[in-house]
Design a protein around this nucleic acid. Structure first.
Length: 762
DNA sequence: GGGACATAAGTTTTT
DNA sequence: CTTATGTCCC
């Protein structure tokens, strides 16, 4: 990564190109920066903020919103290098962290206390599961996952539970999906969160909107406070986030948004490219600056990336180019299996490292799904190459960590239902599910928070469960006293870890896993100590620590400072904003990347393509693609075919060996897949037509995907790879149905395949 | 209430 | 293959 230390501020302007300088020096009024990959956008943002501060703008009055904690940390660091410690006072962070901070300050307006808990996705789903159970709904039709996504989607569009229930379109939708109770679930879920003094991730934005909508004087305060508002990764903001920033900048109108529509990869989470178009409508006097020159990558890499994105229809007008050298061609590596893919990539890293005298940290392996990391780990370990994995199961998602955090959460906020459920019987105190359910019933019957029942259990229950619950209540009360005495987060946490018995239980577990769990808890305690010792944190209370920790993501793992010369492995999503000298994009197989799920559920090939674009543009000097012909998955060998994305990259930029060339060009043997996506029902009137492998990927209008049809035995169908077939058997099970189809292959062979999950047409 | 065992279900990306 | 849930029995 380039060094951007600014020693003399006159110098830095001279290092910028024309549009970059214009963006840094832009005065008042709205500005939109469309910044291609590698065009120095972080640099521009950094210099702009430094420039504002040098020209007398109070750092307290600058709000800078980024997408990850890492990005904001790095930007703050760079600005500090330019303008000194003043940079600490900038309001900078992710949307979620900045607005969590504001919500804590203003919590009372919404009926929360400033100690509110933040529910992570697991908490939310667990709460939903309980509610679904309480409603006596079938948990096969009402899956917590699906319900959660519906609620989350609604919140991101600022639809409250009441709006949801009263909206006929949404209700018709839910009816059609046979889940008409979602509105009621949403309502109860929201109530329960509120009663628990808890907000989920979406609430942090949703409630900020409510706060600014219903309390004009609060809005007034922040509108006037923030003289300058900056939004990074604007293409990934959702409606809820956009409305907040729009409101905040309505007074001073100094809003700068930076984005690249080609790098929008979070539509699945509600990100909305239309924000870019709305921005021009809402701020008609907006000035637009395009940063189109790529400084990061060789021209082969930039051109390859452009050739991929050029296939997308939805995009803004922009031409990215580079004046960098042509550089090496893109290597295409073909492997027979996932394990071989691991070995070949590891070997390639080893050789390149030796030949060019590179370091481990120059390399990154990027994949579509976290589960792919295994084969690379094994191969790298065998060659003695150090690596680090970003993502996967995050440190903060481990059971033992969440357990201790639940204790801390409950100590701070006794209404936190999810934390309560986690710790009431941990370590084992002989309080089982039935007792917990009884407490919950007593609480709701008397309309009391759970803690009130627990603390006065004698009034609500009798028998042998009373004693352990009273002990538990005493324990929590003793923790609470420490908080009230004003002890810092570390002292309290260490005390809780010891007295609760969590540490002891783990200590007594002498298995390998037990040992590592014990170490993890110690590491968390060390982390808390660091938090308390750090000068940057003024507020050292437990509550403040919990706030900071609940919004950490897997990209913010505690980093080993002395040991960062490692190959980095991560998903492409986590790689956004990063750059590496050598990049390997692996697992380029159909249905893996592009993801089968993405195509089936959202039919959004373009977002997958943008993801590929993001991956390619991470590379500075050297890029390699790899794919495997077979993959071990769920205990089976799955046959794979090369991703269409491989074929979409302009051949001029690829370095394809003869062997791989042949493999890419030959008719691939039909892999045994069972996805209905490939099954096409022929309209009766259409004449038969041969299907070529090329056209197989883009069904013409003559064909309709079978999952919109109700197949029956005897129906003639066509499969994109296997050709014509006949439905010989239908199995119906609720809304799911499975078709068994007989195909006649060339050479009079027959093939029987089952296609699951065909949706019934109403 | 809790341990041992059996069965079923889920597998995209993340603030 | 992993993980969560269900069932049996003490």
């Amino acid at each position: 990564m380039e060094e951007h230390t600014i020693s003399n501020h006159k110098d830095y302007l001279s290092t910028l190109n024309e549009p970059q300088r214009a963006a840094v020096l832009h005065g008042e009024g709205p500005l939109m920066i469309i910044a291609g990959a590698g065009s120095g956008k972080t640099r521009v943002l950094t210099y702009r903020i430094a420039h504002l501060i040098e020209n007398g703008v109070d750092p307290f009055r600058i709000l800078s919103l980024t997408f990850t904690n890492k990005a904001s940390g790095e930007m703050r660091h760079r600005i500090e290098a330019a303008v000194g410690t003043e940079a600490r006072n900038i309001w900078m962070g992710t949307f979620h962290s900045v607005f969590a901070k504001i919500l804590r300050i203003e919590a009372r307006y919404l009926g929360y206390t400033s100690d509110f808990s933040i529910y992570d996705t697991d908490d939310s789903k667990s709460l939903l599961r309980s509610i679904i159970k309480e409603f006596n709904l079938d948990d096969k039709t009402y899956k917590a996952n699906v319900v959660f996504n519906r609620i989350s989607g609604a919140k991101n569009r600022l639809i409250s539970a009441d709006d949801y229930i009263n909206n006929p379109v949404i209700q018709a939708d839910d009816d059609a999906a046979k889940m008409k109770e979602i509105g009621r679930l949403y309502k109860t879920y929201a109530t329960r969160c509120f009663q628990a003094n808890a907000m989920d991730f979406d609430d942090l934005l949703f409630n900020t909107n409510i706060l600014f909508r219903d309390f004009p004087d609060v809005l007034y305060k922040y509108q006037h406070k923030f003289k300058h508002v900056m939004v990074d990764e604007f293409q990934d903001t959702n409606v809820s986030q956009y409305l907040i920033t729009r409101k905040l900048s309505a007074v001073h109108r100094n809003i700068v948004v930076v984005g690249d529509d080609a790098q929008s990869i979070y539509a699945f989470r509600g990100a909305n490219i239309e924000n870019i178009l709305n921005f021009e409508k809402d701020f008609p006097d907006v000035k637009t600056i395009k940063l189109e020159q790529n400084y990061r990558s060789t021209s082969n890499i930039v051109n390859a990336a452009n050739s991929v994105i050029a296939r997308n229809k939805a995009q803004l007008e922009k031409t990215t180019f580079t004046q960098n050298e042509e550089g090496a061609l893109i290597d295409v590596i073909k492997a027979g299996s996932d394990n071989e893919e691991g070995r070949l990539v590891a070997t390639a890293i080893f050789e390149e490292k030796m030949q060019k005298a590179l370091r481990n940290e120059n390399f990154a392996i990027l994949y579509r799904t976290n589960a792919q990391s295994r084969s690379f780990e094994e191969a790298l370990r065998k060659l003695g190459i150090k690596y680090r994995i970003i993502g996967g199961q995050s440190f903060y998602q481990r059971k033992e960590i969440k357990d201790l955090l639940a204790y801390l959460r409950f100590t701070v906020n006794q209404r936190d239902e999810e934390a309560f459920k986690r710790i009431i019987n941990l370590p084992k105190r002989g309080i089982g599910d039935t007792t917990v359910a009884k407490i919950a019933v007593a609480a709701s019957e008397n309309n009391l928070p759970i803690w009130e029942v627990v603390a006065n259990i004698g009034q609500y229950a009798s028998g042998r469960t009373i004693a352990p619950i009273e002990q538990f209540a005493t324990l929590i009360k003793s923790f609470k006293i420490q908080v009230e005495e004003g002890k810092d987060a570390y002292k309290i946490s260490a005390h809780i870890a010891k007295t609760s018995g969590i540490l002891r239980e783990l200590y007594e577990d002498k298995t390998v896993e037990g040992l590592s769990r014990y170490e993890n808890v110690q590491e968390l305690l060390n982390g808390i100590k660091e938090f308390v010792d750090s000068e940057a944190n003024e507020d050292k209370t437990l509550s403040a620590f919990l706030q900071s920790v609940s919004l950490l993501t897997n990209a913010d793992e505690p980093d080993d400072n002395n040991d960062h010369d490692r190959v980095t492995m991560m998903t492409i999503h986590s790689a956004k904003g990063l750059e590496f000298r050598n990049v390997f994009i692996v697992g380029l197989e159909e249905d893996l990347f592009p993801s089968q799920m993405m195509l089936e559920n959202r039919q959004d090939l373009e977002e997958e393509r943008r993801l590929f674009y993001v991956a390619i543009t991470r590379a500075e000097k050297k890029l390699s693609f790899s794919y495997a012909e077979s993959r071990y998955q769920w205990g089976r060998i799955k046959m794979c075919e090369p991703s269409r994305f491989l074929l979409e990259v302009d051949n001029r930029f690829l370095n394809v060996s003869k062997m791989v060339q042949n493999a890419l060009e030959r008719d691939t043997t039909p892999p045994v897949t069972s996805f209905a996506r490939n099954l096409i029902q022929r309209k009766p009137s259409e004449p038969a037509r041969a299907v070529s492998p090329q056209s197989a990927h883009t069904p013409s209008t003559d064909f309709v995907p079978s999952d919109t049809f109700d197949l029956a035995e005897g129906d003639k169908v066509e499969h994109l790879k296997f050709g014509f077939g006949e439905v010989v058997k239908m199995d119906v099970n609720g809304t799911d149905r499975k078709a068994t189809v007989k195909f006649n292959l060339v050479g009079e062979k027959t093939l029987l395949l089952s296609f699951a999950k065909l949706r019934i047409l109403k």
